[in-house]
Design a protein around this nucleic acid. Structure first.
Lengths: 329, 329
DNA sequence: CTGAAAGCGCTAACAA
DNA sequence: TTGTTAGCGCTTTCAG
């Protein structure tokens, strides 16, 4: 790989002039420019990001932290982030943390070292203390999951309200025995959605029964299957289930299917996220739609603004209840 | 962020000594080491990757190119890559290309510039010419999709044989009217799988009917729905369907469900990839299992070997037909 | 065992 | 308009 020196030599100019041509900045005569461009072509030269970044303290790279790419929830968000990034001449690098603090550290390190200009974290298990530390001197945005009262700007939805709407929908359908399949309540969104669930029950003077609340430690299908199986073993079965993710809800649906129970006649099911597969199940799944693409766009816009040195405010976006067959008689 | 100079000053030593402590290499007296370590702690210093990489021409970062994270097929592969990478003190960066040549270029650029040490491409739409160019001077491995007769090492399965097995399974079940839902045949794997399909038909003296071969230009659920809908409109309906991806097969299953056709009694379905969803459908999906985790591990091992300067050979891994409800009466 | 200094590739201030 | 040069943060020879 040729460097700027060799280009300068070939073109018979100084490195500064080559740099000027490269950055289209200050004035260069057309003839000089031509000479340089020819040299660049001849040597097949491409400027080194490393040298440039070291000099400029800028990489135009954005990091996106996700716990796992296997959760389809992130797909559309990343799409949004990517589009906004590209439009602003940034590129994104996806970092799968597997909720592993060591991996996280490496990525934080990249930001500290200007290998990347900023980071959007979507990992609910992220080490908040480390992230806050990072945020003191660097650009950080939280997407979807956030810290209450924290100082890192975030974009999210009102999880409590969304859960409330979902459960209220079930109750208004006449289901007064609503179970909750929640994830681990160490996550803020899980606590918020539980609050929404309880609020709806209280509003209709229904009892909150601990045995109808099941917490899973992961969000995959199998855990949904497990959870439903447990709920079906109870003496008094629920007549409706609200699961805090579509993946869990789909697992639950699968188990109901296996047990020969009819959905929604015998048990109604609501999920959360509106992943694409939720429309492929039988019956199709009623779910809470988060504006994922818009969330991604918003997060990216916020991050880029922050990198520019602007102060950015947290944003709460609207959700929507998508009613489909799993709650439609 | 403190730099090495400040650490040296604080510790009362030279930058060279700090560097020695950092790299645990040459001998430093315990006292000097201690002084330096204290200074590092006091200043909360972390070495700059940029400076280090520029100097060493090494980043210990690996790029993984995928067309889209929404395809669950990649999940396990990436897991394998990640684990091997970590074990060898590398980190991976996921690059979603959206099959967009410009994005690809940016990532290639990162490799050329030593921002990353090598790349594993899983993008079937990758610009092979550019990739070959890159491979002349840099480490590149192809995973899953590859170039016949090309010079970039790859890891893959025998797609032709796998398709042959899948279709033969359907025929041996008594289905002599087997349709194929294929992706665009500009992709090598699509051509290979079609060959396998045709080979199985020929072996049983069944005619190859063009109207039973449907090519989609994307691999998502909706395109599977579309494809199945078309096949069901034919005068003579197929009695079995082989789809080249589980996502397509699941879409097909959905459409069959909608049409009230029983699977597998009236139409049997086989997919490809064994994504986690494929076990959540009703009926569960018979599918061809690629050893995805192992593919990832192999690809990463090959790449790291190549970076070390070793010559690496392409590898073809074994597949397996997973028989489930969609072909079990 | 430790320090001084060169240099990785680039940009920008300053000079000409 | 163009060239010279310092310096971004680091590692590594070469001296001492």
């Amino acid at each position: 790989m040729a460097n700027i020196q060799q280009v300068a030599k070939t073109a018979g100019v100084s490195v500064a002039t080559v740099s000027r041509v490269l950055n289209k900045a200050t004035s260069v005569t057309p003839e000089t420019r031509l000479k340089v461009e020819q040299a660049i072509k001849a040597l097949n030269y491409e400027p080194s990001m490393l040298g440039r970044n070291l000099r400029n303290s800028e990489s135009r790279l954005l990091l996106v932290l996700i716990p796992s790419i296997s959760n389809p929830f992130y797909t559309e968000i990343i799409n949004g982030i990517q589009n906004i990034a590209i439009a602003n001449h940034y590129n994104i690098l996806l970092c799968e943390t597997d909720s592993n603090p060591e991996r996280e550290n490496i990525y934080f390190h990249m930001v500290k070292n200007k290998v990347a200009d900023g980071v959007i974290s979507m990992d609910p298990t992220v080490n908040m203390q480390k992230l806050n530390e990072l945020a003191e001197n660097h650009s950080v945005i939280l997407c979807s999951e956030y810290e209450e009262g924290g100082c890192i700007p975030y974009v999210t939805i009102d999880n409590e309200l969304a859960a409330y709407h979902a459960v209220k929908h079930l109750i208004q359908l006449g289901m007064d025995q609503v179970a909750l399949i929640n994830s681990d309540e160490k996550f803020l969104y899980a606590r918020q959605r539980r609050n929404g669930y309880e609020r709806a029950l209280k509003e209709f003077q229904l009892p909150i029964r601990e045995e109808w609340i099941y917490n899973t430690d992961q969000l995959d299908f199998q855990h949904g299957v497990q959870a439903m199986r447990r709920l079906l073993q109870l003496e008094e079965r629920p007549t409706a289930v609200f699961a805090v993710s579509d993946t869990l809800a789909i697992g639950a649906l699968k188990e109901l299917n296996t047990s020969g129970l009819r959905v929604p006649e015998e048990i109604a099911v609501v999920g959360f996220d509106k992943i694409s597969f939720s429309n492929m199940t039988n019956p199709t799944l009623t779910t809470v739609s988060q504006p994922m693409y818009q969330m991604g766009c918003t997060a990216a816009t916020m991050l880029i603004n922050q990198i520019k040195g602007n102060k950015v405010e947290s944003i709460i976006l609207e959700h929507e209840l998508i009613i489909r067959e799993s709650t439609m008689g």
